[in-house]
Design a binder for these strands. Structure first.
Lengths: 227, 227
DNA sequence: TTGTCGGCCGATCGCCGACAA
DNA sequence: TTGTCGGCGATCGGCCGACAA
């Protein structure tokens, strides 16, 4: 999964530490994402926080819901490794928000987007900066849009600029996308223009499936997952 | 699951031994239903057949395909138990075919039943002996049919007697049933009238899911399943 | 600029008798 | 007796501009 698309779907709030950086692993925080409550009184030897090194990161998406999540492998640090650069290494990751001009756009689906007549109102800004350039000399201006989702599957949409006043719309192909992805009003859609010009599409569910996610039986001492 | 409906779906070929009867368990026959081939050379101590007693029987149906199957618990017999009544007890179960007048009817779905216009041609015999009595004084004669499937779910059909020449048809409700059950031409449908007058409906798939069925990891010495 | 609505046109669904096997 | 077909009316999906927030 393309990290660029992953970040666009995860949103600016989600910050992932760089590989090999030093972080704290909080067992209790992790346990709150588990399916069943964990009684820490049964495990008195578990410390509240464990200094770790990030040894690997996987950017993943749930195969059914398209929701993105990251899987990080954490290696506990030895006694002497902990002390050094505790301030510098452990807080303040790279702020990847202010990298360059944002080449993605997110919109929360309205009732009309999700239900009515199978169309999608494209905000002008999204159509002009993310979508391929439209030939406005045609009457009406129309083009076919191809967008790859988090699984690499390609979706086809008819992008038209019409109506009075003029506005951008996705028509043919949109309702199929809504049905297949089981989108409802309140969910969000993300369009991303990658560096090589390809168009990608991701989704964010209004009701996040936290606790019911893909998190399964990760070993306490070696694995961690953030949803 | 009602054993009467189970037998109607399984067909007359399927014979189930009575409980507590003595049977032979054939490891090789059982293994041919397993997902992977079993190499018996690795287990030289397994005899070709094992005398057993049927300790319990469950009449079940697959929750997704509606295909019926039976789960039998077999208890190996001791040395001295085997010898007795080896002829009488081990072969020739009760022939439950010739019990009473058959109160069920099976029909293989034609192309027209499965695809065209969402209707089902009801054979005259089925309509007159299995379905509730139709009021032929009405014009046209119509009634609503309710039928319970193997999961206890109730399906509603419009039963009409019309056309020239007159024939029995299921119209409204039929295409929904075909779509939900994913029926295709060649599959069969079974209608059963239970003793208390209720109507039941079962199905038989043309392509039986043998080997892909619900059979999972049954212990060699204590469990057995027939599909 | 864009969310919602009613109009409307075409596609599909599904009920019908005709006909023949 | 019943399988298949073409006809056709009702329904639905989905594209459209009008209008207003």
């Amino acid at each position: 999964l393309d990290p660029q698309l992953w970040h666009a779907c995860a949103g600016g709030m989600a910050q992932i530490p760089p590989i090999n950086s030093k972080v704290y692993y909080f067992p209790q925080g992790h346990s709150e994402h588990a399916n069943k409550p964990v009684n820490f009184l049964e495990f008195p030897r578990i410390p509240p926080l464990i200094p770790c090194r990030v040894s690997s990161i996987s950017y993943l998406a749930d195969s059914k819901t398209d929701e993105v999540f990251a899987k990080m492998r954490l290696v506990p640090l030895g006694r002497n490794e902990c002390d050094v650069d505790d301030e510098g290494g452990l807080v303040g990751f790279s702020k990847n928000e202010e990298k360059e001009k944002p080449n993605s756009f997110a919109k929360t689906l309205t009732q009309s987007d999700a239900n009515n007549g199978g169309g999608f109102s494209v905000p002008r800004y999204c159509a002009e900066t993310i979508f391929p350039r439209l030939d406005y000399s045609a009457e009406p201006p129309v083009q076919t849009i191809l967008a790859r989702d988090v699984h690499g599957e390609v979706w086809k949409f008819r992008h038209i600029y019409r109506g009075t006043p003029r506005r951008h719309l996705l028509t043919t192909g949109w309702s199929n996308f809504v049905n297949q992805k089981k989108l409802v009003a309140g969910d969000s859609i993300v369009f991303l223009r990658t560096e090589n010009g390809d168009l990608c599409v991701g989704i964010q569910r209004a009701k996040t499936g936290i606790g019911c996610g893909p998190e399964v039986s990760s070993g306490w001492s070696t694995g961690a997952a953030a949803n």
